[in-house]
């Protein structure tokens, strides 16, 4: 905790530290700089715990997939061949790039020196997130045209292939919802950062948003081989 404090401690004499302190941190029996450092540490700590919860959330989905795939290996391979690997790979590239811009934005905001860089990278992150959703939309249209929605008109003969696509639809929609929340959070940072020049400087909200964004990316890194690669080796 102490090392985090030192690292996160803003320079003394920051003009509006007091204005940025919130309950209950504002009532700590310390000077404002230390209280602010603890508030920062508190925000990051909280998002890490939430991410642990998210890991269990997606972990349960991955477990479901694994169990179903082990029981129906051939059907999963056949179903995996039906997904569009071009769109999937493109989206992986888009999302990994967005993690880069998000990381740069987070570091730039923490140093507090590069406001335009921070804003630019945040805008790029949100744009890449939107691009992912657009590509995903094209992919969904193609999937629907190819009758890859489980039900009476399903394209593949093997019944368990429907489980693969049930998982595909569910998990990509859940991922897209997470990503949309992320885009909303980044857009909020951009809007506030444009209005108030000091908003992004040393603001823990940037790091919190970044951590969440990286988790959403990381989930996709697992989803890509699960959804697009089965049945494609050899």
């Amino acid at each position: 905790m102490s090392s985090a404090d030192v690292e996160a401690r803003p320079r003394e004499g920051h003009p509006d530290i007091e204005a940025r302190l919130r309950e209950p941190w504002s009532d700590l029996e310390t000077d404002h700089a230390t209280a602010f450092a603890r508030q920062r540490a508190g925000a990051t700590f909280g998002i890490w715990i939430f991410l642990a919860s998210e890991v269990l959330f997606f972990g349960a989905l991955f477990l479901t997939y694994t169990a179903a795939r082990l029981a129906n290996q051939e059907a999963f391979a056949a179903a995996g061949r039906e997904t569009n690997i071009v769109y999937g790979t493109l989206n992986t590239a888009i999302l990994l790039t967005s993690s880069l811009t998000m990381a740069v934005a987070s570091q730039a905001a923490e140093k507090g020196l590069f406001r335009r860089l921070t804003l630019g990278c945040l805008a790029a992150t949100a744009a890449l997130g939107l691009a992912f959703l657009v590509v995903k939309g094209f992919e969904y249209r193609e999937d629907i045209e190819k009758h890859l929605v489980p039900g009476a008109h399903f394209a593949l003969a093997q019944a368990p292939a429907q489980i693969f696509f049930a998982f595909y639809w569910l998990v990509t929609v859940v991922h897209a919802i997470h990503l949309s929340i992320g885009i909303g959070l980044v857009t909020r940072l951009i809007a506030k950062g444009r209005r108030d020049p000091d908003f992004l400087k040393e603001n823990p909200q940037v790091e919190v948003t970044a951590l969440y964004w990286h988790l959403v990316d990381l989930v996709w890194v697992f989803l890509y081989p699960m959804l697009y690669l089965p049945g494609r080796s050899g």
Partner: peptide, 17 residues
């Protein structure tokens, strides 16, 4: 998802568990 959108994760008729 299974009830409302017909996504058969647990449906034994289609290989679910």
């Amino acid at each position: 998802a299974e009830r409302t959108f017909g996504l058969p994760i647990f449906d034994p008729a289609r290989g679910g568990d």
